[in-house]
Computed example of a mutant assay.
Amino acid sequence: MLKLIKNGEIYSPKYLGKKDILLTGDKIGYIDDCINIPDDFLDIQIIDAAESLVTPGFIDGHVHITGGGGEGGFKTRTPEIQLSDITKGGVTTVIGVLGTDGTTRTMSNLLAKAYALEEEGISCYVLTGSYQVPVRTVTGSIQDDIILIDKIIGVGEVALSDHRSSQPTMEDIAKIAAEARVGGILSGKAGIVNIHMGDGHRNISFIQEIIEKTEIPPRQFVLTHILRNPELFKISIDYARSGGLVDFTTSTAGSSDEKELTPGKALKVMLEEGVNIENITFTSDGQGSLPIFDEQKRYVGLGVGKVTSLYTAVREAILSEKVAIEDALRVITLNPANNYMLKSKGSIEVGKDADIVLLNKEDLNINTVMAKGKVMYQNGEVRVKGTFE
């Protein structure tokens, strides 16, 4: 069936004005000021978007699709994510990661879940490895994983400056990045290394040293959780201003400092400090455990990341911090698509995947979510549920 989205104001995320969008199967087929369909053309669904802003489907680049955690024992291992936990947040593409646990959570499990989410209707990719170094891969090689397995597009999340990390050296991280880079070059993939930043005193020193002493470019890394403490955030501003990629986590359960500096506020600060919007992304850390540790690094509690926090943070940036809509949307659409070389994602253009979100003009709440041309969520109702929901 064809679908025609009529009279919506399009943010591609660049503002395109009021236009119609014709979806042909799972692709965007045509965009024009006014698309007219003959009255006797029966096999088409018309969606009135006159009171809506039309945006690309959101990309969440850091989701624990198989669950995460376990820092408080086996009972604190969070469960696998369900399809509607993703789509009701406007997310149509996810990148799955492991995390602290690379033993009971495996790459085979991660890949199987990615294929399952694809079968249920959204797009899903994964990163190879977990917190641990040496990186635990599928084939035994980072480079081989990226080249030979279609869903694997990079490495991560590898932990640095964290009491849960494997305490890798600078040379360890440089070798990981080098192998990921070559794997990406040979396969036409990003080969990005996702770095989990802890709150240790070393901060991002290893990454800075690699960039200074080797030929590996800054964009080979994306540093996530950079709102963990004020010092890390301050250092990350300079890093991003010099061309590095930084990522704000929208699910939080950390220090009071972290809660005070929301992703929306942090985005505004970075833009005011001269950071290029292209170097910033938001991710949810969805379905991951968000453990709370005391000053002696003892486990005292646990939260669970929510994919729905992703757009909540973007909406807050627009409404509360007055960040331009185009800039706020970029951090969950075009920027992650560019960083991870997802060529059919991230913008509303002819030929790209029909991943579309409709936002109510009045309050910017999510009204409709379409993944590859199929309506997954509409008017507060989940239209397509996961197999076990």
Rank of each mutant, 00 (worst) to 15 (best):
D353V: 03
L111F: 09
G380T: 09
V97F: 00
T283G: 08
S205F: 10
R164L: 07
P217W: 13
K175H: 08
D355E: 10
V269W: 15
H225I: 03
G264W: 09
F233V: 02
F41S: 11
N338T: 11
V304W: 01
V307M: 00
I59R: 03
V275T: 10
I366R: 08
V63T: 00
I10Y: 11
G188C: 14
E9R: 12
G99K: 00
G243C: 06
S256R: 12
K297R: 03
D101N: 02
P230N: 07
N379I: 03
K265M: 14
V138K: 15
Y311T: 01
D39R: 09
E179D: 07
I292P: 01
S320R: 07
S165C: 05
N335Q: 07
Y15K: 15
I95W: 01
E295V: 00
G188H: 15
I210K: 09
S242D: 13
A177I: 01
D162E: 10
D39Q: 08
S289H: 04
L310N: 00
S255L: 07
E389T: 05
I185G: 15
N335T: 06
I356R: 09
L310H: 00
K3R: 15
D238S: 11
G73H: 01
K265Y: 14
L223Y: 09
T249R: 05
I280W: 13
S130M: 10
V54N: 07
K306A: 01
Q220S: 14
F293A: 02
I325A: 08
K75F: 12
S108P: 00
G386Y: 06
I142W: 15
V300W: 03
N365R: 11
F293S: 04
E260K: 12
D355T: 06
Y377N: 06
L22F: 12
E209F: 06
D285T: 02
F282K: 04
A114F: 05
M170V: 02
K372L: 07
G70E: 01
T55R: 04
N339P: 06
E389S: 11
I237C: 05
V350Q: 13
K3N: 14
M197R: 05
G184V: 12
L53E: 08
Y125C: 15
V155K: 13
M107Y: 06
K18L: 06
R330I: 04
